[in-house]
Design a protein around this nucleic acid. Structure first.
Length: 866
RNA sequence: GCCGGAGUGGCGGAAUUGGUAGACGCAAGGGACUUAAAAUCCCUCGUCCCCAAAGGGCGUGCCGGUUCGAGUCCGGCCUCCGGCACCA
């Protein structure tokens, strides 16, 4: 053994050893209890970043720990390999997306291996390979058969820069989530997956997600956005037609003073004569900055009171939600209020706050009831209250009135109670090349024809041109485009759109269950020996919170579809979810040169201009803010054991982690100290006398403080890992043990045995966090087999227990004294000890003792009078 | 605006059920070793009063409450961070 710790040498050695022994290969074994540990697979962008390091370090600790606890652990990794950056690289640099992607994968795989992660690489999946995406197409066809995949024309978010459609959730503040370009609306024929079919299931099952962070469950619930309301028919005056509206506020129906249609509503086209004006509204559709409307020239009849109210087309009414038409109640809805003000429409108050019914009705109705003019109201009153001016429903409370008015309209057959969801069907069409081809053929004679199952996969052709202008390169590929119709054998064309990459990641965790990446879902339908049945669901999923809605919701949706196909029999894919925090670092900003790298700053000054540099707040690592740490550099300098250890020690996993270069030094020092301890042991006389491992603790050493500390540490580390993976405190406990071992001077053979034993335990406990050094030192103290094949140690409560405790004595809640007492004393004895303490006697003096509280093993509080 | 979460030393963070606030680490200061430096080891380290010690006061964003006892529970506020946001 060398005196100096050389992480590069040690890590390479053990990475080779693990690979040669194929130590992390797993096979289904129904006799063993399984544990599925999964980290979100990366997009192969070129290099891993610190977010990955953290994510995968967390997952690896869990996988290694569970393995030592005796579970049959499946811990796979793969590549989310379709996506736009590959195509952008093709356009910019002329590299084919496939080449670019596979080269990135190769490099990133070496990076992951350098981290010492315990993956079973035989299960690796790559979503851009035909063997993988074939099943995207297969699922699509299955959904098509069941009516869960359909095509419709709709307005979509269009990013002019990426020349593609974006999902609603890919639009952030009206801008493209990738390139920040302002998104415009464009009408296209799109393929949709009917996730709304499962809206209620997905919502209800949220309550089963006990192992998920509450906030993520809440975000899912909000996204699904269930609301109960009423659909009501407003007849168009002078015609037989009517407008169906949706409202959650049936109690305000008497306050409706106009009706608004979405610009794309079929009736808008019918009712508006001025097509130019309508077109303008359409262009402004969904724009949040301004509400604009257009009077149709027609009137609607309010079904509750037969009042005639004007019909408008308004840009703020969404076609996608409810019925695409609303009744407007400006007195009780802020949006309607703003619209009414702008177009000078009537505002009628019908709800009044509960406490203020009598006598005045401010601030809404200064002039009493009726005849209220626009100028008298400053804002809509949106809360529930008591109904007024609502015929026989007046004086009812809002919650009651909603039901009563709904019943009334149902009886008249002019309305019905309905449930609405914010959740929309999932538009999966992308006008992009680097994705899964949608397996559909368009025939002039037969129309839309699905590709027959036996013809899968529809291969993405490689010989296409990337111009960067216009639409998808597939449009130019005659070979791909022209096909004979599967039904009539006539001339037909292929669909050229590809699928949203969220489809790929919606089932990859199931794909890992197939050994050696041989995915075959067909053989899994109603298969009692299914490997999916053994491995799924995922016991622990770990990833960034940025996927709290999209990826997780889509995966839940796919799980339900796959269950309905008879492939699996559980509802939810991920039992436990851990959303790790971001990796952040201090930022540096020069007033002239903007963000600076740390090496551009000397003595708090910018090396370019000499101006004082502002130390900005710590923010998520990003290239643009120049506060990133490159994992390659880090591992070259300190090794992966140190990198992993620090990222686990600096903060609990779910919280943001602030990167600190000195903190990394500290972690490195800690590993060096352990190295030093083992080196000391190796060179000890005891070791030389006992070449064969001596590993029994003699009876006479059972009360050794180091042995006690060792058992206390097993307990603490185990509990900290079990208690929501609090690795930071687990590592702190290991540091305490190392401090204790360092200061321990073995003299007798018993001492040496205890010394060796505590080192052995230390290495076992350390191994999930920093596995390479643990292996190396495990070997150095004389063990033959790999540390990762050992069982997790168990503590003995009797040994861990302290013989003496420090008793805190309080008087009136203030700490006045501390004394050591035997741990075995009864409450009464403890009380007497406390009262007998000279200092306490002095404080009490002749004051009356009112009460004495004894907290077992901890403290005594004596309450005295003045 | 709505819905969440969080505020603890110079810093990252501990405190598991209401029971010693500040574990562990970082930084800082002092010392040992060394020709010197690095590395390593030892000591100090919330704050105020006191020459110092002993001792004591204050202290977990702010104000109040419950309790023998509150970082932890309750009520009200402030600040910061996330998510959602014309969803009728």
């Amino acid at each position: 053994m060398e005196e100096r710790y050389d992480p590069q040498k040690v890590e390479l050695k053990w990475q080779r050893y693990w690979a040669e022994k194929n130590l992390f290969k797993t096979e289904a074994d129904p006799s063993k209890k399984k544990f599925y540990c999964l980290e979100m697979f990366p997009y192969p962008s070129g290099k891993i970043h610190m977010g990955h390091v953290r994510n995968y370090a967390i997952g690896d600790v869990i996988a290694r720990y569970k393995k030592m606890r005796g579970f049959n652990v499946i811990h796979p990794m793969g590549w989310d390999a379709f996506g736009m950056p590959a195509e952008n690289a093709a356009i910019k640099e002329g590299v084919h997306p496939a080449k670019w992607t596979y080269e990135n994968i190769a490099y990133m795989k070496t990076q992951l291996n350098r981290m010492g992660l315990s993956y079973d690489w035989e299960r690796e999946v790559t979503t851009c390979s035909p063997e993988y995406y074939k099943w995207n197409q297969w699922f699509f066809l299955k959904m098509y058969e069941k009516g869960l995949a359909y095509r419709k024309s709709s307005f979509v978010n269009w990013c002019p820069s990426c020349t593609t459609v974006l999902a609603n959730e890919q639009v952030i503040d009206d801008r493209c989530w990738r390139c920040d370009t302002l998104v415009v609306q464009k009408e296209l024929e799109q393929w949709f997956l009917k996730i709304t079919h499962y809206a209620e299931d997905l919502l209800r099952a949220c309550d089963e997600l006990k192992g998920w962070p509450e906030k993520v469950v809440l975000m899912q619930k909000n996204w699904i956005g269930k609301s109960e309301g009423l659909e009501a028919d407003f007849r168009i005056d002078g015609t037989d037609e009517s407008i169906r509206i949706f409202t959650t506020r049936a109690d305000t129906l008497f306050g409706a003073t106009f009706v608004c249609l979405a610009p794309t509503h079929t009736l808008s086209e019918k009712l508006v004569a001025d097509k130019e004006a309508l077109k303008k509204i359409k262009e402004q559709y969904g724009k949040e900055d301004e509400k604009i409307g257009l009077f149709t020239g027609h009137y609607a009849v309010n079904p509750v009171n037969d009042e005639k109210i004007p019909i408008y087309v308004a840009n703020f009414v969404l076609m996608e939600y409810g019925t695409g038409a609303i009744m407007s109640v400006p007195a009780h809805d802020q949006r309607d209020f703003e619209f009414a003000k702008k177009y000078n429409l009537q505002i009628k108050v019908v709800i009044t706050p509960e406490q203020q019914t009598n006598p005045p009705l401010p601030p809404f109705a200064k002039g009493g009831r009726g005849g209220i003019t626009n100028s008298e109201i400053e804002a809509a009153f949106e809360d529930d209250g008591i109904l007024i001016d609502s015929s026989s429903f007046s004086r009812l409370r809002s919650d009651v009135a909603r039901i009563e008015i709904a019943k009334f309209l149902e009886k008249k057959r002019l309305g019905k109670r309905v449930i609405n969801y914010k959740l929309r069907d999932w538009g999966i069409s992308r006008q992009r090349y680097w994705g899964t081809p949608i397996p559909i053929i368009y025939c002039d004679r037969c129309g839309v024809v699905p590709v027959p199952g036996n013809d899968l996969p529809v291969i993405l052709p490689e010989d296409v041109k990337f111009t960067g202008t216009g639409g998808s390169p597939l449009l130019e590929s005659e070979k791909f485009l022209n096909v004979s119709c599967p039904k009539c054998k006539g001339k037909a064309r292929r669909e050229t759109d590809t699928m949203d990459t969220f489809v790929d990641s919606s089932w990859y965790f199931i794909a890992y269950c197939f050994g050696k990446g041989k995915i075959n879902f067909k053989s899994e339908i109603r298969n009692p020996k299914s490997e999916i049945g053994y491995w799924m669901p995922v016991d622990q999923y770990i990833g960034g919170v940025e996927h709290a809605v999209l990826h997780l919701l889509y995966s839940r949706f796919f799980t339900k579809v796959i269950k309905d196909l008879g492939i699996m029999d559980f509802n939810e894919p991920f039992i436990n979810l851990l959303t790790q925090g971001m990796v952040c670092k201090e930022t540096l900003k020069c007033p002239e040169h903007g963000w600076l790298f740390p090496e551009d700053v000397k003595d708090d000054k910018c090396i370019k201009c000499g101006q004082i540099v502002e130390r900005g707040r710590t923010e998520k690592m990003s290239k643009s803010k120049k506060n990133v740490i490159d994992p390659d550099h880090l591992i070259n300098k300190y090794g992966s054991d140190t990198s992993r250890l620090f990222s686990l020690f600096a903060a609990p996993p779910e919280r943001d982690l602030e990167w600190s270069d000195q903190g990394v030094d500290g972690a490195y020092r800690f590993l060096n100290r352990i190295w030093g301890i083992v080196f000391k042991f190796r060179n000890s006389e005891f070791r030389i006398r006992n070449i064969e491992t001596e590993n029994t603790i003699p009876q006479s050493a059972l009360r050794n403080p180091l042995l006690r500390k060792t058992h206390q540490t097993i307990k603490r580390v185990t509990n900290d890992i079990e208690r929501e993976y609090h690795f930071n405190t687990a590592i702190a406990a290991l540091m305490e043990l190392v401090n204790e071992i360092s200061s321990f001077e073995p003299k007798t053979d018993d001492d040496w045995k205890t010394f060796r034993y505590s080192i052995e335990i230390l290495l076992l406990l350390l191994s999930p966090f920093s596995p390479h050094i643990a292996e190396e030192l495990w070997e150095a103290i004389g063990n033959k087999s790999s540390v990762s094949e050992q069982r997790w140690p168990v503590w003995d409560e009797k040994i861990a227990k302290e013989e003496e405790i420090e008793l805190v004595v309080q008087v009136n809640g203030k700490v006045r004294s501390k004394l050591m007492i035997p741990a075995t004393l009864s409450d009464d004895e403890v009380k007497q000890k406390a009262l007998g303490e000279p200092k306490i006697k002095e404080i009490i003096g002749d004051k009356a003792i009112k009460k004495v509280f004894v907290v077992k093993g901890k403290l005594v509080n004596i309450v005295i009078g003045d």
